[in-house]
């Protein structure tokens, strides 16, 4: 078998973009989520409303921003509101259908750690912190998560719950005071996982050329597979061309600045 004509990272971004619907209002995390959300907008979801925590609503950037507050986001937005308004009126009040997050550590129940590795008072690694994520995770109708698949990233239990997923299983989210669905889907460079009845991520589709064994070895818990496991549809020419054009424009723009 010949190697696929795309990279694992491209497959991840494309698979993530497919999770977004044309009528979504999406709160976009920076990095991989931002690429996936803008790819969806350029492909099957031209009217999707992309919202960034810097206050931009309905933004349509021509190139991917490096930060959540690049000028490109503001100049292409329908409107830009203050940060308190963004978090109070738009996120807290329940106007966002999907939140899209990444994270340094994600566990089997979709809890996310972006705070510390090691004890909080004497961390081995001090991570950037929660930012918008704790409330994105609780206030959006549904949460999508994307991360590169590795045992140190997809762990059995996060050392610190910065942003709540499903706690330790069924009922924990509601007991903590949440009324929203929480994480439903985890998109990695190897597979797509969905949350099952035990509130745990299970593999529902493998990307082209990826084996079960690779996924097992790259996952920090005894990962399970759905019985009707399928193969993630390969990227279409349109998906690949659109993504590569977007990334080429982005590289040129950032190199020039």
């Amino acid at each position: 078998m010949t190697a696929p004509a795309w990279t694992a990272a491209e497959m991840m971004t494309i698979a993530a973009s497919r999770q977004l619907a044309p009528d979504d209002v999406c709160f976009v995390g920076i990095g991989a989520p931002s690429a996936a959300c803008n790819l969806a907008r350029l492909l099957h979801a031209p009217d999707i409303v992309l919202v960034y925590e810097s206050g931009t609503i309905g933004t349509r950037p021509d190139v991917l921003p490096l930060s959540i507050g690049d000028g490109e986001l503001c100049s292409t937005a329908l409107t830009t509101v203050s940060v308190p308004e963004m978090f109070r009126y738009w996120l807290q009040a329940g106007r966002i259908t999907k939140g899209f997050l990444g994270g340094a550590q994600i566990d089997r129940y979709g809890n996310i750690n972006t705070t510390v590795i090691g004890p909080y008072d004497r961390p081995r690694v001090r991570l950037p912190g929660g930012g918008g994520a704790p409330e994105i995770a609780s206030s959006c109708d549904e949460v999508l998560v994307t991360a590169t698949h590795a045992p140190r990233t997809l762990v059995d239990r996060v050392e610190f719950v910065t942003s709540l997923g499903h706690g330790r299983g069924p009922g924990d989210r509601r007991a903590a005071g949440s009324t929203t669905v929480g994480p439903t889907t985890l998109i990695t460079d190897l597979c797509v996982m969905s949350v099952d009845a035990a509130r745990e991520f299970v593999v529902e589709s493998l990307h082209v050329g990826v084996t079960r064994r690779e996924v097992v070895e790259a996952t920090g818990w005894p990962v399970r597979f759905v019985s009707d496991l399928v193969s993630t549809p390969a990227p279409t020419d349109e998906e690949l061309t659109t993504l590569r054009d977007l990334q080429a424009r982005t590289e040129r723009a950032h190199a020039a600045r």
């Binding site: 978090f87 704790p134 409330e135 609780s138 719950v161 709540l164 903590a176 005071g177």
Partner: peptide, 13 residues
Amino acid sequence: AFRGYVGSDLRRV
């Protein structure tokens, strides 16, 4: 007052 820190360990520290 706001709706936040739901289930977050930030409350603990």
